[in-house]
Structures are given as C-alpha cells and as structure tokens.
C-alpha cells in the first residue's frame, strides 16, 4: 500500500447541520456585520480632522515673548537637512536693527517644500528652538517658486505682548536671560523705541489718551 492510497482525512472539526446549511453564505459574515456600522469616511474639504499632536507639518520660526526672533542664523538646520531643503544666510545685529538677542540673526531663511521630507532633523538640530513644526499640512501649488517659503512666510504670528522685530533687547538683559525665559513681554523702552522709529508699526499697542 503506497502513500497515495491513504484516503485524505481533514484535521478540522466537522461542521454540524447548521454549519453545513450556512456554509455557502458564511463568507458574507463580514459584509453583513459592516452593513450596520457607520461609515468611516472623512469628508475632507468640509470636515478637517485634526492630525496627531506631534505630526510633522509646515515649519514655523518662533519668537521670544517680546517679539525678537529666536533664529540666530547658525545654519545647523541646513547642515542637518538630508534633502538640502533649507537655505540660511546670517547677518550681524546692529543697534539700529536688532532682530534677535545676541550677535547674529538669520537674514535670509528659505525652506524649499519641494525638497523637504518633513523628517524633523532640522528641529532636533536647532539650538534655540527657533524652528519647530506645526500641524498644518495643506501645501500645494502650481509653480516650483511658490513652494519655496521665505522668512516672512515661516515666522510665527505675533502673540499678545510681542513687538515686530527689529527692536532693541530688554534693557539690562543678555541673550542668556532670553534663553532662561526671564523675558516675558515687550517693555516700555522697547515700545517707545519702535514708536520713535516706526510710528506706523501695526504691532504697537494702542495709545491711551488722558
């Protein structure tokens, strides 16, 4: 007697009468269960579901609480970038044009979103937490040039208490005080400086007469 002559016996448990009766439609079980469930479809343009809080979206250049920029133009983000998407040019702060605490600031800051892969290595490299990522993902455009974001496109909007840069640092402070978080908002001296040099600045607080 050879192996081929042994009749095949399945190891699976034998079905009862009901099991045999429903066997032809058993494959529809998943379908039937899902007919009575609500659809999972996201209605994207009308209903935008929030991303995960740590989603890697568009970048943002942050500011100190008095409105000075955090970016010091060190180019570490550009060095860390695996896709060479970031271009930074640094310039020296002067008493007439102080953009960030300390010596230097980023005068040109460009991110090419057609190269950026949103890996976040630039965020890890940034020594001043100037560069972070938002949850904003809606980017697209008809031209290549339009997707190179400049500094003014990336800078964070002004929060209450902030003044548009350039303006001097808080009197009597150094950049170390800024990094320790000792500066909490723009002070009177800075407001007066901006009022003197740029009277039409939209970030100036309203003057209270009388």
């Amino acid at each position: 007697m050879t192996r081929a002559d042994v009749p095949f016996v399945s190891n699976l448990p034998r079905k009862g009468a009901a099991g045999r009766f429903f066997a032809p439609v058993a494959g529809f079980g998943v379908t039937m269960r899902n007919i009575f469930r609500r659809p999972k479809t996201e209605q994207y343009p009308r209903q935008k579901l929030p991303t995960e809080p740590r989603y890697h979206g568009r970048h943002q250049l942050n500011r100190h609480p008095d409105g000075l920029e955090k970016c010091i133009g060190c180019e570490l983000c550009a060095w860390a970038c695996p896709a060479d998407a970031i271009y930074v040019e640094a310039d020296s702060n002067t008493p007439e044009a102080q953009y960030s605490p300390g010596e230097r600031y980023g005068s040109v800051y460009q991110i090419n979103y057609l190269r950026c892969i949103f890996c976040g290595l630039c965020i890890e490299a940034c020594p001043t937490r100037a560069l972070t990522m938002t949850n904003d993902y809606e980017l697209q455009g008809p031209t290549r040039e339009g997707l190179i974001y400049e500094k003014q496109d990336l800078l964070a909007p002004l929060a209450p208490g902030m003044l548009l840069a350039p303006h001097p640092m808080v009197p009597g402070t150094t950049d170390a005080d800024y990094y320790r978080g000792d500066v909490t908002q723009a002070v009177r001296k800075q407001i007066d400086w901006v009022r003197e040099n740029r009277p039409d600045d939209p970030s100036l607080p309203e003057v209270h007469h009388g």
Partner: peptide
C-alpha cells in the same frame, strides 16, 4: 517637469491622503 508639463506640485514625503485630495481639488 523635466519630462512632462506639471500642473500642480504637491509636497510631502509622502503627502497624506488629505493633501492629495487638496491637490485634486486644485
């Protein structure tokens, strides 16, 4: 765009499906 004319560029690596839908709207 070196090979064919492109109408819409969509960044992202990869873009999330919402981004693709947004680009399709464009």
């Amino acid at each position: 765009d070196h090979v064919v004319p492109v109408d819409i560029y969509l960044p992202g690596c990869p873009p999330r499906p919402e981004m693709l839908l947004g680009a399709l709207m464009a």
